[in-house]
């Protein structure tokens, strides 16, 4: 048995060929990454698609197994949700979210200033104190809060929710605003003070315009957290101050079908946040990346 070893044909590689194949490889990698990205995006987004689809189904199709993908869309569920007195809940949510966010920003900006640009004594301790208030689980404090609110006769009161939401979001806002303030070069502030700008003037005319994207991002986070807050709202409100998340659970029942109606209510409930996010989009992208450089 003889074996002939033929030398592997040497392909003449010119520089241009190499470049072509590298480009092709790059193109392939590029398009496969794009595919994976689309796939991942779809996977992450599919619950939302499902939610919106279910909201337009009649109740009997929403619960069917196997699921139905093609159907005649109906607005019946949205009508039922709106007729079920959703307005009051939305108004309560708007008030609780809006007022608490304004309060948070008004309090967080000076506080962040005091722990970044002109650090007070023991800044690190102060910062740790702020964040430590987020370490206790909410469920551990609900009973004392409930009893205190009961004694003060402020159960089922929007003011109570506003105070709690402000307290809940303040630490996050201080930390976020601090990191945005820190991005501002010291020279800018030096220049401002050289020109004779005082504290408030510096804050208003120099600092605020520079951190607007950060402020938008912070405010949006506060809006989202306050809008979606469920636990305090469920436990501390009843007929007068109940917010949208409480309205959502009231759509559920242990007897009978409710999926389509719940989905329609959820779509309506998430619309304001989606709109707020869309409006703030441009600022947001800058704001979020601003903090990310470090």
């Amino acid at each position: 048995m003889t074996t002939t070893t033929t030398p592997a044909p040497v392909t003449p590689t010119t520089k241009s060929d190499e470049r072509k194949s590298r480009e092709a490889r790059r193109r392939f990698t590029g398009s496969s990454i794009t595919t994976v990205t689309w796939l991942l995006a779809f996977i992450f987004f599919s619950p939302v698609i499902w939610l919106v689809m279910t909201a337009f189904k009649p109740e009997s199709l929403a619960a069917s197994n196997p699921p139905v993908f093609f159907f005649v869309p109906t607005f019946e569920q949205f009508g039922a949700v709106l007729a079920g007195g959703a307005g009051g809940y939305f108004l309560n949510s708007l008030i609780a979210t809006g007022v608490s966010t304004v309060l948070v920003i008004l309090l967080a900006v000076p506080a962040a200033y005091a722990v970044s640009i002109r650090p007070v004594k023991k800044t690190q301790d102060v910062l740790f104190f702020f964040i430590s208030t987020k370490m206790l689980p909410v469920v551990a404090v609900i009973m004392p809060i409930y009893v205190i609110a009961g004694q003060l006769k402020v159960l089922d009161n929007i003011g109570t929710l506003i105070i709690l939401y402000t307290a809940m979001n303040l630490p996050i806002a201080v930390w976020m605003m601090r990191s945005f303030f820190q991005e501002i070069p010291a020279e800018v502030l030096e220049a401002a003070s050289m020109d004779g700008a005082g504290l408030i003037k510096t804050l208003r005319t120099i600092l605020m315009p520079m951190v607007t994207p950060g402020l938008a991002a912070t405010a949006l986070i506060c809006v989202i957290f306050a809008w979606n807050e469920f636990f305090f709202a469920l436990n501390l409100t009843a007929a007068n101050a109940a917010t949208v998340p409480v309205f959502l659970v009231s759509q559920m029942t242990s007897e009978g079908l409710f999926l389509a109606k719940l989905s329609a209510a959820s779509v309506l409930a998430s619309l304001p946040v989606v709109i707020a996010g869309w409006v703030a989009q441009k600022q947001l992208v800058r704001g979020l990346s601003m903090g990310a450089v470090k």
């Binding site: 008004l106 002109r118 010291a186 504290l199 003037k201």
Partner: peptide, 27 residues
């Protein structure tokens, strides 16, 4: 990154901002 403590040499920040400060407090 840690921002170096900045001490602006403004002499009287309080007076400069007193009116606006009051407004903020009112708000």
């Amino acid at each position: 990154m840690k921002f170096p403590p900045f001490r602006a040499p403004t002499a009287h920040p309080d007076r400069a901002g007193s009116r606006t400060g009051l407004r903020t407090t009112k708000l």
